[in-house]
């Protein structure tokens, strides 16, 4: 199913792109970089949970995003986005039934998105759809032994923002974002503020 979604999103964007004037022909070596920070709140049911339960469990947190794209003026443009997302944290200081004695757990899960993004923009309104992967990174300490481990998980994002010009080709963009990390079965709503830099000529 996830590959189906990837193919359909890619196909739709490819067809749409083919019907529009190629923005790269006008300014072929110009890129736009936006960066921002926000707060992500988990809205999923939490099928994936800690084994031990109890303790202090935080679900969601700071989210940072960097987006690179080809144009800020064309109706449709393509780009890449990355960043960092605080996903969850567990502090448990109680004994749990592992059969290995007192189980102290400190664990943090964060993610680095690596995604392709299609942006449609007009009248200062931006709509983004992204497909790609999250590099999920877990730092855990149990029985006083730290472990850092990671895995890649497919992810989807839909976002909407409003461009506020602040002079010298800078813009501010309040953005509302929905993110689904597929196998992890977590969905987030993120409210973020981005700063758009003037174009970089390559």
């Amino acid at each position: 199913m996830k590959y189906c979604i990837l193919i359909i999103l890619t196909s739709i964007s490819s067809v749409t792109f083919a019907q529009t004037k190629d923005p790269f022909l006008a300014k072929p070596f110009e890129i736009y970089i936006d960066g921002g920070i926000g707060y992500a709140k988990n809205i999923s049911a939490g099928i994936v949970s800690s084994a031990s339960g109890g303790g202090v469990y935080t679900n969601g947190g700071i989210s940072a995003l960097v987006r690179v794209r080809g144009s800020r003026n064309s109706f449709i443009t393509f780009g890449l986005e990355s960043g960092w997302q605080y996903i969850s944290h567990l502090e448990e200081r109680k004994a749990s039934a592992t059969g290995f004695g007192k189980t102290d757990i400190t664990a943090t899960l964060s993610g680095i998105p690596i995604m392709g993004v299609v942006t449609i923009q007009d009248y200062h309104i931006e709509m983004h759809a992204s497909v790609g992967f999250y590099d999920l990174i877990s730092h855990s300490t149990t029985f006083n032994i730290p472990v850092t481990s990671n895995t890649f998980d497919m992810a989807f994002t839909l976002a909407a923002g409003y461009q506020i010009p602040i002079g010298n080709n800078y813009i501010l963009v309040p953005e509302f974002r929905w993110t689904r990390i597929n196998d992890l079965q977590k969905s987030f709503l993120t409210l973020a503020l981005r700063l758009g830099l003037p174009p970089f000529a390559l």
């Binding site: 099928i47 994936v48 949970s49 800690s50 084994a51 031990s52 996903i87 969850s88 567990l90 749990s96 592992t98 059969g99 290995f100 189980t103 757990i105 664990a107 943090t108 899960l109 999920l136 990174i137 877990s138 855990s140 149990t142 029985f143 032994i145 472990v147 481990s149 990671n150 895995t151 992890l184 977590k186």
Partner: peptide, 22 residues
């Protein structure tokens, strides 16, 4: 189940697996 247990199984001891996932 267990979002903090990620990646290769042999990164974790048995005790850690029991603590972090089911």
């Amino acid at each position: 189940n267990g979002e903090f247990a990620l990646g290769p199984v042999n990164n974790y001891t048995l005790a850690q697996l029991r603590a972090l996932c089911t």
